[in-house]
Design a protein around this nucleic acid. Sequence first.
DNA 1: CGAATAGTTGACCGATGTCAATGAAGGTGG
DNA 2: CCACCTTCATTGACATCGGTCAACTATTCG
Lengths: 211, 211
Amino acid sequence: MIAYTASKIATREFTAKAPLLPTRPQPLHFFAAGTEIYGQNELAGCIYQVEFGAIRIYRLLADGRRQISSFHLPGETFGLEVDDRHHFCAEAISNCGIRKFSLASHPEMSGELLSLALQSLGRAQDHLLVLARQAACERVGAFLLELAERQGGTNMIELPMSRMDIGDYLGLTIETVSRIFSKLKEQGIIRLPSLRCIEIMNWDALHSMNA
Amino acid sequence: MIAYTASKIATREFTAKAPLLPTRPQPLHFFAAGTEIYGQNELAGCIYQVEFGAIRIYRLLADGRRQISSFHLPGETFGLEVDDRHHFCAEAISNCGIRKFSLASHPEMSGELLSLALQSLGRAQDHLLVLARQAACERVGAFLLELAERQGGTNMIELPMSRMDIGDYLGLTIETVSRIFSKLKEQGIIRLPSLRCIEIMNWDALHSMNA
DNA sequence: CGAATAGTTGACCGATGTCAATGAAGGTGG
DNA sequence: CCACCTTCATTGACATCGGTCAACTATTCG
């Protein structure tokens, strides 16, 4: 659908991360930005690992509200479900390369599943805390810290996702997200060299937003 | 600490639920209302099953804000952690009887762990959706439906927890929780025979609050 | 270069939080 | 058994944060 240009494949996305599933090389599947990797109610049974690009996992409510439960960056895995159906959609945010592992045909992976499930659980619980008890600016702060950490602790955060994605992840509107970015910029806590890039100038300030 | 009176042990709390861990009878531990079952940062490694009573799992932020991530009713299990430490506190809401299964000394239970983890994950994800994208009255509606379902689909819901617990679970203040209960009562959707008991009069209305 | 899309900013409003007063329930001691 | 006291819940008045609507700006893509 969308031309696959080199510029889309950001350099940092090739950084290696805990390679959980190196059983044997699986073919790399490409997904253009915006395309669906799997849909709600489809049969589950595979684990996906991001090679490059970024993906979002989300649900839709009947009235169109969307809730993004997680983003996944290179090296990270997704696709594990509570039962044999997908309860979420997975979509490529940017152009992606993804490796797919069928659980049925890789029984040697079953040992990994518990640790994958626990990792997902831990992230969900952390996210829960943010959504339940943090104000908008604290949510954005937590989001930036989380992204920075998952990108290796760098000052220069790359944002593969749109403001709308961020809002749907944090339970905020795009306007609020935008306003808070502007406020943090005014306060010298971050810089915004470009729309999809944030430089953290004051880590302490970000950390002190959270308890 | 608190006298253990028969009246505290509500009758419904003995109803059997999916007995996940019937490996062999474990001694029943008693916890008085308000007492801690385990604390944050303590060593983990056990699974707990509620025999009767109710417990809350929560974290505290530095400024005192509390987030309750889950409640557990008779038959349900809790205590599984992402690593070897507890990241949450567990407290008895009412007087409780609890069975404790050490993972180390019950290797035959390891098969259950994945399904326990996935069940926790599923609940966390559902809760996430509620907190991220639902208004206060929708949250309360979802909470009532969840409790009713976990109590066997009954119309008469017993609330073992205080308004403050409910607020800390739903990311609301006690005043808001109280106001919404009052509003639902006015609209004839629920009745409040007593503080800790809610009768659902109009299921459709509750369901239609959520998407 | 122009159109479409994404992001920012401002004005305004409403939902929810805060603070305070009142009311109800349950436990304790007389 | 009653009265008091403490704790919990409800209700109201008001403030505030964040959402909504709308205009404007910037960026991207054709």
